[in-house]
Computed example of a mutant assay.
Amino acid sequence: MSTLWALTALVLLSLVLGACAAPGPTSPGAAAANPGDQEASSTPGVGGSAIGFIFVGPRDDYGYNQAAYLGSEVVAQAFPELEILRAENVPENQEAERVMENMIRNGARIMFPTSYGHLDPALEVAKRHPEVIFEHQGGLKTAENLGTYFGTIWEVVYLSGVAAGRMTQSGKLGYIVSFPIPQVLLNINAFTLGAQSVNPDIQTIVVFTASWCDPGQQAEATNSLIAQEVDVLTQH
């Protein structure tokens, strides 16, 4: 997912930074007469010195947060003139608002809240800061200065289901997930439909851990599924 994240972030930033840039004046006299300069100064996302990224977990979780963090590193390489502000283990509550406010005070005019539960805090901060662009990963709400994006991951998950359907001997597949949000449910459904395209009688047994990253709970869920004769496992 890191390649997807990096490409998405670069495209979004290129659109914001490229499309919003207005031509500068060619002489001192032109500065006062150029209406494009005034328009650019009030355009969301323009004029900052930093880009902010917030993550719900650690950058080295070998999963979602690490992929997002790798995306931020590619952004740093592509825009060396801008400081990249990052915050890990940011809860999905008012603490996320505080972190984003602090990044804005430190020059961020483009923000990437990367966890599903960061959406509502981002919407609140976006109301207070119309000069800042927010790009939220995987959300279902938007605002004038807040957009959302997500890859069509369920297409690849469907193919994973086809592979699982061909590998299973018991006809029971296991899916360990966090919360029943739309992206998670899309993946469960895609995986199951892919497996059932091979064998309509295949079952997918789902365990919700109610945590984005809890290795202990995930190990417990794994053992529980194996005890139920599940012989192919996947996770979100």
Rank of each mutant, 00 (worst) to 15 (best):
D120R: 01
V90C: 00
K141Y: 14
P91Q: 02
L82W: 08
V157H: 11
K127Q: 10
E83Q: 14
L146G: 08
V74N: 04
P91I: 02
L119D: 05
A96G: 09
P91H: 07
G48T: 03
F134M: 12
P130N: 03
T43G: 06
L159Y: 15
L146M: 15
P80I: 12
Q66W: 01
G107E: 01
F53N: 00
N34C: 11
N34K: 09
S115F: 01
E92Q: 13
R128I: 08
Y158V: 08
G57K: 00
S49T: 15
N34E: 09
K141P: 10
G117I: 11
E135D: 10
G48A: 14
N145I: 06
A40T: 04
G117Y: 07
L159V: 08
E131W: 06
A31Q: 12
Y158Q: 15
G151R: 00
E73R: 11
G47D: 10
Y64I: 04
F112T: 06
L140T: 08
S115M: 01
I51V: 00
T152R: 09
A67N: 13
Y149R: 00
V75F: 07
G139L: 00
I133Y: 09
R105M: 12
N93G: 03
A78V: 01
V132T: 04
E131V: 07
R98K: 08
A126G: 01
Q77P: 07
K141I: 10
A78N: 03
I104A: 07
A108K: 02
T142E: 13
E83L: 09
N106W: 01
Y116D: 01
V99L: 02
A40I: 03
A33Q: 13
G63T: 02
D60R: 02
A32C: 13
Q77H: 11
L146F: 14
N65P: 06
E135P: 06
G48F: 06
A67T: 11
Q77V: 07
Y158N: 12
T142M: 11
A33N: 05
L85Y: 05
Y62G: 10
E135C: 14
Y64H: 12
P44H: 11
A96Y: 08
A126I: 00
P91F: 03
I110R: 02
N34V: 14
N93D: 14
Q77Y: 08
R86D: 11
I104H: 05
D120I: 06
I84S: 08
G147A: 06
R105K: 12
G138V: 04
H118A: 09
A50F: 03
L123W: 01
A76C: 05
A96N: 07
V132H: 05
G48M: 09
V156K: 11
G52T: 03
Y64S: 10
K127P: 04
E95S: 10
G107T: 00
S49H: 08
S115P: 04
I133Q: 15
I51N: 00
E73F: 03
A122I: 00
A96P: 09
S160I: 07
S42L: 05
V75L: 04
E144A: 15
N89S: 14
G29L: 05
A76G: 07
I54C: 11
G48K: 04
E131I: 04
T114V: 00
P58R: 01
M103Y: 05
L85P: 09
S41V: 07
P121V: 01
S160Q: 13
A76S: 15
Y62W: 12
R109C: 04
R86Q: 14
E124F: 03
D37A: 13
P130F: 04
T152G: 10
